[in-house]
Structures are given as structure tokens and as C-alpha cells.
Amino acid sequence: MINRSDSRAREQVLVTVDLVIFTVREDRLQVLLIERGQPPFEGRLALPGGYIRVGERLDAAALRELQEETGVDGSQLHLEQLRTYGDPERDPRGRVITVAYLALTPDMPVARAGTDARSADWRPVDQVLQEEAGLAFDHDVILREALERARSQLEYTTVASAFCIEPFTIADLRCVYEVVWGFKLDPSNFRRKVTRTDGFVEPTGEHRVQELGRPAALYRRGTARLLSPPLLRSSEVAHSQLSTAALR
């Protein structure tokens, strides 16, 4: 017989999904945030998300929230599950476990607010992480971990091309790495590594006319999903430092 007063008794748990949606706008890594229009944390910035509906799968809920918050078909984007956050104190309304998703997308249009938000807007990630007020719930933690996941993904996978609108140049792709990693890369070294990695990018045979210099070759996403060898941040920093030292 179950003792209802037993501290080990089951508690009611609600499940939500939260979305960390990254894009590159104006040569900066930006994240979609909403201003909450109701308690708790009314008026605070937060990641878009919402409760799971009855009978709804997690991935379907994430796609629905993405559609509702941005008007974008998430099936065409890079969307992956980040991890689950279940601290008992993360939501003042009760025990709420959230499954966070990471979405990577090319330059997005102006955001639109969902049903429970006053506004929605793209904001530079570096500025958001420096603001004293912080995000609602534990969304600061989720955002930081999503940022590190995105940075790591660029080292070992070809996901950087998900930020590029096809066709793109090698310089466009390099800009993604520089924006997400937060430091400049040597153009020649980057081009050599990208073009020598099988399946990373595929040439279209076309070129983009530029204001200065020769026309730039255009590429599309290749068939590879993993980078072999990986494009490591540590080696790129070292190469950049050596190049700088050689110029002194």
C-alpha cells in the first residue's frame, strides 16, 4: 500500500521544449529571444518555447514552437536536441522539465512574437550573455551550453554550411566560423582545409562578381556530415598566432 505522505511519492511533472535558435545577422551570431508577456518573469527576456501537447512527440513540439515563433519550417533547418534540464527550482510554477533544442539557420527575417510573448527579436549572443538581468528561468545556462555545442559542432561536422544561403563562397563560410568561434581565421589556410576535405563543399561551377579582386567561386553543401580531419579551434588559434608573429 502506497503511503501518500511518503517523501518518495511521485510528484506531478510537466514537460516543455525550449529553443536556442542561432543565426548570423550583420556578421554577428544572434539568438532569437522573446519578451515574456505573462508571469512568471513577466517582462523578462527568454528563449522561445512552450508546453508539450497531449500525445505530441518532443521533436514535433520543437518544430511547432519554431514555426509559431519564427514562421519558419524547421524541417528544412539543422535542428538537434541539446539536452534535458530538470532542476526542481528552475520554474516557480512547479516541477517543469524542459528539453532544449538547438537550431542553426541562415540569416532570418524579422521575428514575430508568439501567443504568450510581447515581442520577439534577434539579439547578439555576446551582448545577451553580458547583461546583468539575465534571461528568465535557467535560460542563461541553456544558452551558454548551446553556444558551446554550436562551437564544437563546427570543429567536427559540416554544420557550418547550415548558416549559409546557397550558393555561397568560401569567404561566406569562413565568416560563419569567425562569428561563432569569436576570432579571425587565416583565409588561405581555411580555404585549403575546406576544399581539401572530401564532401564538405561542392563547387557549382559559377562565380560571384565582387567589387574588388577576381570573381569568387560559388559552392553548395556537400554530402559529408563529419569532418575528417576535424577543424579544431586550438589549431586555428595557433596558426593565427604564428601568422601574426611572422609579420612582426
Rank of each mutant, 00 (worst) to 15 (best):
R4C: 06
S5A: 10
D6M: 03
R10K: 14
V13D: 06
T16G: 02
F22E: 01
R25I: 07
R25F: 00
R25A: 06
E26K: 12
P40F: 09
L47I: 12
R53E: 15
V54E: 14
A60H: 11
A61K: 02
Q76C: 04
H78F: 15
D87P: 01
D87N: 12
D91L: 02
R95K: 12
R95A: 04
P106H: 05
R112N: 06
G114V: 05
A117S: 15
W122G: 03
W122H: 07
P124C: 03
V125M: 04
E131C: 07
E131M: 11
L135F: 02
I142K: 04
I142E: 01
R144W: 03
R144P: 01
R149V: 09
A150E: 02
A150W: 01
S152G: 15
Y156D: 04
Y156Q: 05
T157Y: 09
V159I: 14
F163N: 07
T169C: 07
I170V: 15
A171P: 05
V176P: 08
V176I: 15
Y177P: 02
W181N: 01
W181H: 01
G182P: 00
P187E: 09
S188K: 14
F190M: 03
R191I: 00
R196K: 11
R196H: 10
T197S: 14
T197A: 11
H207N: 05
H207G: 00
V209N: 09
V209L: 13
E211L: 13
L212S: 13
A216D: 14
A216T: 06
A216L: 14
A217M: 14
Y219T: 10
R221I: 09
R221Q: 14
G222N: 07
A224Y: 12
S240K: 04
A245P: 00
A245G: 00
A246V: 09
L247G: 00
